[in-house]
Design a protein around this nucleic acid. Structure first.
Ligand SMILES: [Mn+2]
Ligand SMILES: [Mn+2]
Ligand SMILES: [Mn+2]
Ligand SMILES: [Mn+2]
Lengths: 218, 218
DNA sequence: TATTAAAATTAGGTTAGTCTAAATTATTGT
DNA sequence: ACAATAATTTAGACTAACCTAATTTTAATA
């Protein structure tokens, strides 16, 4: 049951593509997510299927098997715990952690993983508000909504961001929007769907539709 | 200047073989250290030479170039800082850290490395008493001697162990010998060169010549 | 010095993971 | 229903890192 780093990355891609959208992950979306040629993806999907980590066919796309899901969730757990570690203990900002966590998630040591979890106080969410699976693979389910779905006037709390790219996160930093911040939705522009929100201290900022779709609140 | 994990491991092997013994590292010793076939080593030595990380010829063996040395020392720094981290912050024992550090040493993040160093208080030695190169690549030089070279009756302090294998380190644990422990050399047996030492609390133990050669004291 | 043994290299192969270009299958718009 | 377009797969190649078996070079010893 020992996966290569490459295999772990494919499984993770299939996992995250499978979360959004109900069907499996199709070749093209995996290729895009991993910046790899579709022909290479075909190859790897065949191998992952042979190893019983995924089911795959052209119509339904790739879906993790029970075994594949178990292994993938462990990788996700590692990724998110390491991100939390980097922010909580190593003075990283939320825009810096993802790249390093992409490396750290492949470290194999159950003891280290458990100690990390303990040191961080068994956190439930990572610095981007993503749920951290526990040692049994269970993770909390939240019913957060994207900002554009909120009625005008509601006061909400930012609980998750659906894009971990440094460019997006730095943009949020600049707008002074962070996890757990309280926002009030003031208005949504008709012509471009941009959202006007009030931050703490009465400060108001416009968020593009593009950006606001990726901000999840409760 | 981006090395593969495999290249880093070869350079590290050449480095450590070059430290002991004045000449370079020969093919066979590298092959043994990495558990790799000599024919494969020939291959890799050629590639490392082409990339200007080593000088190599059959007579003198492999020697790191200035560039190669710089990169290798950084890997050693990472390895030893991570080992220190595991012991100081993650409740690992000195016999458990090496294997995990072999993985962690390949993580690429200058910020993480600096923060790690800072969090640990800029340590000078790792859990086995090996010197940790600083950010400039400088490391303290000590004049420790192996236990069999000490005169009878001298009181000394354990400052380094020259074998990081779990089996050796667990053996030392069992004998209650650890870093910084004070020992008195009571006698050296003629027939097998085993060493009788007195530990704190007057307890006395025999150490085989094999073991005592690997215990460095001051 | 000639013979033998050890060390290193060469030759030829394998596997994982990638690529490009060409062929095949599906989907879609008219 | 059919042509155009999009998605996927096949075919053929490449690189890094390894292997075994055979050969060559160097060292040791009789
Ligand atoms: Mn991430
Ligand atoms: Mn995250
Ligand atoms: Mn070590
Ligand atoms: Mn060490």
């Amino acid at each position: 049951m020992v996966l290569t780093i490459t295999e772990e990355n494919y499984l993770k891609a299939i996992f995250s593509l499978g979360c959004s959208g109900e069907g499996g992950a199709n070749n093209q979306s995996i290729a895009e997510k991993l910046s790899i040629n579709p022909a290479s993806v075909t190859d790897m999907l065949r191998r992952l299927h042979e190893k019983k980590f995924i089911d795959y066919n052209r119509a339904d796309g790739a879906k993790l098997t029970k075994e594949g899901l178990k292994l993938t969730i462990k990788t996700v757990r590692k990724h998110r715990l390491w991100e939390t570690f980097l922010v909580e203990k190593m003075n990283f900002s939320w825009s810096e952690v993802h790249e390093v966590a992409e490396q750290l998630e492949h470290i194999q040591s159950d003891k280290l993983l458990n100690e990390l979890d303990k040191m961080l106080g068994y956190p439930k969410f990572d610095p981007h508000g993503d749920p951290i699976p526990d040692a049994q693979g269970k993770m909390p389910i939240t019913k957060a909504k994207p900002l554009p779905d909120i009625e005008i006037g509601r006061k909400v709390r930012v609980v998750n961001v659906a894009d971990n790219s440094p460019s997006f996160l730095k943009y949020l930093d600049k707008q002074e929007i962070g996890l757990n911040n309280i926002l009030v939705v003031k208005e949504i522009q008709d012509f471009d769907k941009s959202v006007l929100v009030e931050l703490k201290g009465k400060k108001e900022v416009f968020l593009s539709h593009e950006a606001s779709k990726k901000i999840f609140v409760e």
